[in-house]
Amino acid sequence: MIHIDQLHIKYPGASRAAVDGLSLHIQQGEIFGLLGPNGAGKTSTIKAVCQLHKAQSGSIRFNFGDHAQSPLQHIGLAPQEIALYPTLTARENLQFLGDQYLVPAAQMKERMDSYLEKFELADRADDKVKTYSGGMKRRLNLIAALLHNPSLLILDEPTTGVDVQSRAIIHQYLREANGDGLTILYTSHILDEAERLCHRVAIVDHGTILDMAPINELRSKYQSADLEEVFIALTGRKSRD
């Protein structure tokens, strides 16, 4: 579905590249985890995939089976930030985004109601987002990425700062949606979450992929009990904060 080849991103004034020759291939229907410490180049890669950053070199190719539309029409992004308008209600936020994606009016209400129900926000749908808890905002942030029915969902730290209940709701949805064919590109610091969700992961640091394989293969390769040990083995113990 996505072929990233020798991607190279360097920000003006930066001493080294944020992404340095990164290559990967994400297949349709998989949940792919892009894992790495802070500053490893995960968000820069995501932004390049979303065409929000121009890469100095390398290529990103999409295969959504639809050449008539822009690839962006098939991508849903739930960014790290709560990219919602706090003084609007959940419904108003979603209506605005749906209108911008020109979601057919007939389907709009149905989709909105369905997602709000699934993510257990229906009873607070007409409340302003600023009155929501962190977990509720994260769930709504995710709905906003899904409303236009993307084929590829990109999640940048989707469960940061959420409680166990909200995380469970998000995980349940992601598994269901993936079961229905949704491809997911996922980044996180929470490695046990990645371990439970992802089919395959790439561990990146300093803008390059250190290793990439299904989680079981990585565990055996590094003779580790869990993904965290693999991660430490590849990226070291030195803090990046």
């Binding site: 929000l52 822009s70 960014p79 790290q80 709560i82 919602l84 308008y85």
Partner: peptide, 17 residues
């Protein structure tokens, strides 16, 4: 707060916005 990033992702003319 990132809302404009979401809007830039919409594959359409920015003029209506």
């Amino acid at each position: 707060d990132g809302s404009s990033m979401r809007l830039r992702l919409i594959p359409a003319s920015p003029w209506p916005l």
